[in-house]
């Protein structure tokens, strides 16, 4: 990663977080909890993929329609998150695959 990438990434991230800050408080609370969960679960395309900005788009629409955040996500916010990343491999999965691959070749 070049310094330029890092700076560019930070700028984008700051712009993203500014949008989050502009959300009503209930949305902000749920967004932050979701983000924390998603970072731990670790889908590989999370940091620079479209997932997080997409959630903010989705939330902004809900705000404009005058809805509460849980009306949008349902009470089981974790299930919503799991659905969001269902098709993305996580770091853990990629890692586990890479070691089983290495073991496979090491044994030959």
């Amino acid at each position: 990663m070049s310094i330029q990438d890092i700076i560019e990434g930070k700028k984008q991230w700051r712009a993203h977080m500014a949008r989050v800050k502009a959300l009503p408080q209930d949305y902000r609370i749920v967004y932050k909890e979701m983000q924390r969960y998603l970072f731990k679960v670790g889908p590989v395309d999370l940091p620079d993929g479209p997932l997080l900005p997409g959630i903010v788009d989705f939330f902004e629409e809900g705000v404009a329609a005058g809805k509460g955040v849980l009306e949008l996500t349902g009470n089981d916010v974790a299930a919503f998150c799991d659905d969001l990343v269902k098709d993305s491999p996580t770091f853990a999965e990629v890692y586990q695959q890479s070691i089983s691959g290495e073991r496979g070749t090491a044994e030959k």
């Binding site: 909890e33 969960y37 955040v69 974790a78 770091f91 853990a92 586990q96």
Partner: peptide, 27 residues
Amino acid sequence: ALAGGEGARTYRDRWREQLNRNVAKKL
């Protein structure tokens, strides 16, 4: 959990509960 080793499932379940609990509490 990060490395996906033994017990990773359990941790994910715990984070899941934590997430819903925190949301309910804070809201």
